[in-house]
Nucleic acid binder design. Structure first.
Length: 367
DNA sequence: AATTCGGGGGG
DNA sequence: CCCCCAGAATT
């Protein structure tokens, strides 16, 4: 738990200073006041809404988040509702958004808030930092946006923007660099409008100071402060180390139909896609004969085993190369199989199945 | 410090 | 194909 505290250490060395930080703040804020994106969580920035939005926005684009945020707020409008929601309903609301531990951590935190904080989010960054799913960025974002505290929120946008402003060649993904930038931003954040300052940097990163050497410098409100622009280095900065390649996993997926119902199983709580539902599957590409034997061991007497289309799903670090079979059959006795038997409608409305299985959930619609 | 966590949008 | 995205937790 103490690891998270690094953001409070102050060690801003190794960067040149911005020449006129007060003017930088003013230029950024003036631009933000005129050009801020209109977003659902900005219209009514209660701590709860800010918190949920920040959790959804971790490594996730604004346009992706918006419909999820709207649905989430209708279903779970406040902290007490979130603290009591069933896990399956919560995961259904999160279905397709990815990084599912974010959702599980939301409920954990809501329960902590109910039992220890009177059902409210704490305004202090340190207290926020101790809550599940809230790290250095999110703690700063919530504390500044929802509570007006003068703390920075260092995300990927800030790292990119500041690397260019300072013409820094450091690898912005290194932990040591993030720590230095955090300390640097502690001093640069606007004491008067910290929330607008932090959100201004995000909007600047999203619309102007774009990655991949494609910044729109002519439109930039802080161009006068940017060393990379003056030195024509915006195509070279920021510097990032290349990421390692994905590993490939082969899988065989079984869509098993019996009495208008389909077999699902629940994934384990740790690791990939925790607690979500999936079609029964095995590692490797099995042949129909091997599949028949396997199914028999699970209490399924297969009547027919017909191939479904192969499909590929790409995670950040894994590729699933899947082949599927549609299985019709007889179950030895009710409850003998290890599966949960559900209707199409239940799958659609209640069970959270990861996008990776989309090709096979779709195959149901054609039955 | 490196790896593990999803999924989609755009070059 | 590749990149990146309002990162956090774990090892």
């Amino acid at each position: 738990m103490n690891k998270k505290r690094f953001i409070l250490d102050s060690a801003a060395e190794g960067f040149p200073e911005l020449e006129v930080p007060a003017q930088f703040q003013k230029d950024l804020l003036n631009w933000y006041h005129k050009n801020a994106r209109v977003l659902p969580w900005r219209s009514q920035p209660s701590p709860y809404r800010v918190w949920i939005s920040e959790m959804m926005l971790q490594q996730t684009r604004v346009d992706t988040v918006i419909p999820y945020f709207q649905r989430f707020m209708e279903a779970l409008p406040d902290i007490p509702a979130l603290a009591e929601v069933t896990e399956d309903k919560l995961l259904k609301l999160w279905q397709g958004l990815g990084y599912y531990n974010r959702a599980l951590n939301l409920k954990k935190t809501a329960q902590v808030l109910m039992s220890q904080y009177g059902g409210q989010l704490p305004p202090d960054r340190e207290a926020l930092l101790a809550l599940p799913g809230i790290g250095p960025y999110s703690a700063g974002a919530i504390s500044s946006i929802a509570f007006g505290r003068a703390v920075p929120a260092v995300d990927g946008n800030v790292l990119r923007i500041m690397a260019r402003l300072l013409a820094s060649y450091e690898d912005i993904n290194q932990g040591a660099h993030k720590k230095k930038m955090q300390a640097f931003m502690e001093k640069l954040v606007s004491p008067e409008e910290p929330g607008n300052f932090n959100q201004g940097l995000m909007d600047l990163g999203a619309g102007i100071c774009l990655p991949n050497g494609q910044p729109k410098c002519p439109d930039c409100p802080v161009q006068a402060h940017c060393k990379a622009y003056r030195q024509e280095l915006t195509a070279l900065i920021p510097v990032k180390i290349p990421k390692k390649k994905r590993r490939i996993e082969e899988k065989t997926v079984f869509v098993i139909a019996w009495q208008e119902r389909y077999a699902l199983q629940k994934r384990k709580s740790g690791g990939l896609l925790p607690n979500l539902w999936e079609f029964p599957n095995r590692e490797g590409h099995l042949k129909p004969e091997e599949s028949r034997e396997l199914l028999k061991d699970m209490g399924i007497q297969a009547v027919s085993i017909t191939p479904l289309a192969a499909s590929k799903h790409i995670f950040s670090h894994i590729e699933w190369h899947m082949k599927g079979f549609l299985v019709t059959g007889e179950v030895d006795e009710r409850g003998a199989s290890p599966f949960t038997w559900v209707t199409k409608e239940e799958i659609q409305q209640e069970y959270s199945i990861p996008t990776a299985f989309q090709a096979y959930t779709k195959s149901l619609e054609e039955e």
